[in-house]
Design a protein around this nucleic acid. Structure first.
Length: 817
RNA sequence: GCCGAAGUGGCGGAACUGGCAGACGCACCGGACUCAAAAUCCGGCGAGGUUUACCCCUCGUGGGGGUUCGACUCCCCCCUUCGGCACCA
């Protein structure tokens, strides 16, 4: 068994070499074209799972492939190490989150090493360390100075299980993104980032992201949710200032027969003054407000409302219309008030029917004859005063002008996107660098006092912000007046950490600045970002926002940080997401022990196209192991005779055939890699190996010169997928130096040209024969050859040829009747 | 409800621009080697029909229609699955 494929020894050997040789550590080099290969930084949850393996195998294939094309590749990794699981684990084990986190990092780092990923370890970052998070605080202060970080009291999403506030992006269908428990609404004073200032920019610049998956662009577009329309003020009897509504259908305003405000609307107390029994009304409204979010939102919920007793004036018709309060109007969207047009809106229609309110048609459909209400499309205006007879499009333009002239409203857009609430009432996060002073108010911590270090809290209790329980931390002198002040006890959302980490990789040890701008300028933008599609909204919108803020602060010169995004599919088990709680987590270590990292990496890339979900099944892993073994056996058989370069030997027919196949394979593998088709790239190498075995069987005399070439190129082709294996072969072929820095083998075009091609002969579109013809033969020549074929003749007998379709080197279709 | 993606052998999947459907791998079946087994190497492997030796024919990419000499691929309708948004005014 001397020559068996000993993956354990091979993999350890090369991992050690790469590390001690600092092979993958890079620095700026103006001479060379840079390439930034980035994978989403992992949360150190304990162990790598198959999703990580997939992510890093993809990233490594890209990085190594680019190296081989001469790029100066930066390929970093780090740890997104603040967050709740660490804190929860610490509470459970009565220990400290830092201990849990750093142990996990050590563990997962060792696993990354065992996978042999080409990371530049000297750029490793750990976001829970003060050297990193001080820059979160620094960015926060810059944003505070610009009014982009602000404090306000408002309705927040509260997760009872996590005992903290969540951002809108972290609430999925009314449930916490982490533990899926129901989210409550609470009134709290919180810190926000003014991401809505960038709503338009975030939307517009999606057009720059040409190589992002369409799916992600659509999801972001939906999330930002721009609707264009107008704000219009309705006068209300006895209410100063009236009520402002937002509508996308100003063209329907003549049909607005009542007004509806949200139960939370600030005008509600005033509106109720003319109500006959205000107490009863208040009880009813309270009922709407306390309806849980998931019940209240959702079109299947019953629409409930009451008449306030107040009357408003439709500014176009000058009619008195009643003002209602109803559960289906949301305070968070638009102005929290709507002009109801029951004839042309389904919700308003349903509501009007239920409460017997007037339904007045003001739009006639142009194309259809249907007279059914509600009619929600655009059409021609009727019963609309001076605007009657116009089509919606024209009417809208004129009506926008009208409200502007009369000073009763303006054309605007409303966004679904809300400001990003970043306060978290938890311990394991970046302290917000703010001090509250009775005299000076909200005072930022001066830059020279950064970082505000996270104090040690021995026992974390839930229900209060843990930092408030540490007197040495909480009690602090006001930096402005020196009198006793109180530190902000909330910490930042962990998504702040991951919003700019890829800048820090460019200059990870800088203690004066978040990074040296020259270094960032060299490496940016990110050329290829790879990660799970689950971040399509959360992380990928926050990170875009951060870059835009940084641009406006003069810290970077571009609008977007990432040029190309690749979203990999999930790795599932029996169709379900792998999770510790489900007990269906598959441990990569097991497979590394059994077959080696190269086999595991090869398999996870081979098993499915990378963008598709992959349901994990071990059958097939062995196939990849067999594949490597098959190469190995053949290689060992010839090793001695090909270990040194030899004289060129004239190529026999078999040799030529193999040579052609080799270059075709090089061509395919290169193409597939460019398109992220790792699975077919690997399949192409497998196919080539089969041809090599055929050669082994058929060739009487093995061509040493050719075989050496073949094994060299196979090693090079395999190196992005199975780098240890490739390195070992490369070395045994007498080469020195990391194989990932060798030039990628380009196919020789001369070998890609076939002399003979097999073309298909069709009669009336059905395959009736195959023919070897000289490549590039013209239609007539091909037709002559085809006519000589007995079978084809049989099909043509007694028929008239109507038409001949000829596709060179592909097929000949004879149409007969 | 709206938007998007996908449906191909027993299984994972191939077929980029319309041109031999099922590459490659798994599983399975047969042969060689072996006392035997494993491993390995060679071969077979969509369904049906006819001969039953090759050959040949028909059907076949969720269902139905269309465009075309020719459709897994393009167009229309429907079904199913997955993902996103959702009383958004």
């Amino acid at each position: 068994m001397r020559d068996a494929y000993d993956f354990k020894t091979i993999e350890q050997k090369w991992q050690k070499k790469w590390l001690s040789g600092r092979d993958f550590e890079v620095c700026e080099n103006a001479e060379k074209q840079k390439y930034y290969a980035l994978e989403m930084l992992p949360y150190p949850s304990g162990k790598l799972h198959m999703g990580h393996v997939r992510n890093y195998s993809l990233g490594d294939a890209v990085a190594r492939y680019k190296w081989m094309h001469g790029y100066n590749v930066i390929h970093p990794i780090g740890w997104d190490s603040f967050g709740l699981p660490a804190e929860n684990a610490a509470i459970r084990n009565n220990s400290h989150p830092e201990k849990w986190t750093l142990e996990n990092i050590a563990n997962m780092k060792a696993q990354c090493m065992r996978l042999g990923i080409s990371y530049d370890w000297h750029r490793e970052i750990t976001t829970c360390l003060p050297e990193y998070y001080r820059w979160n605080q620094w960015f926060f202060l810059r944003m505070f100075e610009r009014g982009l970080a602000y404090r306000k009291k408002g309705t927040v999403n509260w997760c009872n299980k996590c005992q903290t506030v969540l951002a809108n992006e972290q609430v999925i269908e009314g449930r916490c993104w982490r533990d899926e428990s129901e989210v409550e609404k609470r009134e709290l004073e919180q810190w926000y980032f003014r991401i809505t200032d960038y709503a338009d920019a975030l939307l517009q610049d999606l057009d720059q992201l040409k190589s992002w998956p369409e799916k992600v662009l659509i999801m972001q577009r939906n999330w930002i949710g721009k609707s264009e329309g107008a704000r219009v003020r309705f006068l209300v009897e006895g209410l100063a200032g009236g009520i402002e509504v937002f509508t996308t259908r100003l063209d329907t305003i003549y049909g607005s027969t009542f007004l509806v405000v949200a139960p939370e609307h600030p005008a509600v107390p005033d509106l109720l003054r003319s109500h006959p029994s205000p107490d009863q009304a208040r009880t009813e409204i309270q009922r709407y407000r306390s309806q849980q979010q998931t019940i209240r939102e959702g079109s299947e919920a019953e629409k409930l409302g009451i008449f306030t007793g107040a009357w408003a004036l439709n500014p176009f018709t000058q009619e008195r219309i009643p003002v209602w309060i109803a559960n289906f109007v949301l305070m968070e969207y638009g102005t929290g008030a709507i002009m109801a047009v029951p004839a042309h809106d389904e919700r308003d229609y349903e509501f009007a029917k239920k409460y017997g309110l007037e339904i007045r048609r003001v739009i006639e459909p142009v194309e259809t004859q249907s007279a059914d209400l509600p009619f929600c499309g655009y059409g021609r205006l009727v019963n609309s005063g001076q605007f009657s007879g116009m089509e919606s499009e024209t009417a809208l333009r004129k009506m926008f002008a009208f409200i502007r002239e009369k000073g009763i409203g303006e054309q605007t857009a409303t966004y679904r996107l809300k400001d990003w609430g970043i306060s978290r009432q938890r311990y394991w996060g970046t302290p917000i660098p703010i001090i509250y002073c009775a005299q000076c108010g909200v005072v930022p911590v001066p830059d020279d006092q950064l970082p505000v270090k996270l104090p040690r809290v021995e026992t974390i209790r839930l229900g209060v912000s843990p930092l408030a329980t540490v007197p040495e931390f909480a009690n602090v002198a006001c930096p402005r007046c020196g009198k006793p002040g109180r530190r902000e006890a909330d910490t930042m959302d962990t998504f702040v950490d991951s919003s700019w980490y890829f800048y820090r990789y460019c200059d990870p040890q800088n203690s004066h600045m978040p990074y040296d701008p020259d270094k960032v300028k060299y490496w940016f933008p990110v050329d290829q970002y790879i990660g799970g599609v689950e971040h399509a909204i959360l992380h990928l919108i926050y990170m875009r926002f951060f870059t835009k803020v940084m641009r406006d602060l003069g810290l970077v010169q571009w609008d977007e940080p990432v040029m190309n995004l690749f979203t990999q599919g999930m790795v599932t088990k029996d169709g379900a997401k792998m999770a510790k709680s489900k007990g269906n987590v598959v441990d990569p270590d097991h497979f590394i022990d059994l077959f080696g990292a190269d086999t595991l990496r090869l398999f996870i890339l081979f098993a499915a196209p990378p963008e598709k979900d992959l349901d994990w099944s071990e059958s097939g892993v062995e196939g990849c192991f067999r594949f490597l073994n098959r190469i190995w056996r053949l290689f060992v058989r010839h090793e001695e005779s090909i270990a040194q370069p030899s004289e060129k030997i004239d190529a026999a027919d078999e040799d030529q055939k193999l040579m052609r196949k080799l270059h075709q394979t090089l061509h395919r593998v290169g193409n597939d890699l460019e398109r992220f088709h790792m699975n077919t790239a690997i399949a192409a190498v497998m196919e080539f190996l089969n041809s090599l075995y055929d050669y082994e069987d058929s060739a009487a005399n093995k061509n040493r010169f050719l075989l050496r070439d073949v094994f060299e190129k196979m090693a090079l082709m395999l190196s992005p997928f199975a780098p240890h294996f490739a390195e070992e072969m490369w070395e045994r072929l007498g080469h020195h130096g990391n194989i990932s820095f060798q030039p990628w083998p380009k196919p020789d075009p001369a070998w890609l040209v076939e002399e003979q091609v097999e073309i298909v002969i069709q009669v009336n579109g059905r395959v009736r024969g195959k023919l070897f013809v000289p490549a590039g033969i013209d239609e007539q020549g091909c037709m002559d050859l085809a006519m000589r074929d007995k079978k084809v003749q049989g099909y043509l007998e007694g028929k008239t040829v109507r038409k001949v379709v000829y596709v060179q080197d592909r097929l000949l279709n004879i149409v007969v009747t």
